[in-house]
């Protein structure tokens, strides 16, 4: 699962850190630190049979860590990252400012076939 961690760090955590600065704004200030947690040790498959792994990103503002600040999944073959916003999953580019719509069915494991 090292691959998942590296992919999320390179594809989301680093770009997020680069795009953030302390602005004179009501938005939440950038966290001091982020850490990626891979949520599963085996691959899940969505209803289209594509393999993905769930992850969570924790943040630290003061001394305490806040868990699950970002939750999402990364697809093994394409490397696509999706993040959860509300009840839906959107491409991770959403958090970097791109106006992208939610994608149905991603990051949701298909029911096991009997």
């Amino acid at each position: 699962m090292d691959w998942t961690q590296r992919r999320v760090e390179d594809g989301l955590v680093k770009p997020l850190a680069q795009s953030e600065d302390s602005r004179f704004s009501r938005m939440r200030p950038p966290p001091r630190e982020r850490r990626v947690r891979v949520l599963q040790s085996t691959l899940s498959r969505d209803k289209n049979g594509r393999a993905f792994v769930g992850f969570a990103i924790d943040v630290r503002f003061g001394s305490e860590w806040r868990r699950d600040d970002i939750v999402g999944c990364v697809y093994r073959e394409s490397g696509d990252i999706f993040v959860k916003k509300g009840d839906a999953y959107r491409p991770a580019a959403f958090l970097l400012g791109k106006n992208v719509e939610p994608v149905a069915g991603v990051c949701q494991a298909a029911a096991a076939r009997s």
């Binding site: 602005r23 509300g86 839906a88 959403f94 400012g97 791109k98 106006n99």
Partner: peptide
């Protein structure tokens, strides 16, 4: 209108 500012990203949905 092409991009979403951080405050909007934080608020949505």
């Amino acid at each position: 209108f092409e991009t979403l500012p951080p405050f909007v990203i934080e608020k949505l949905p």
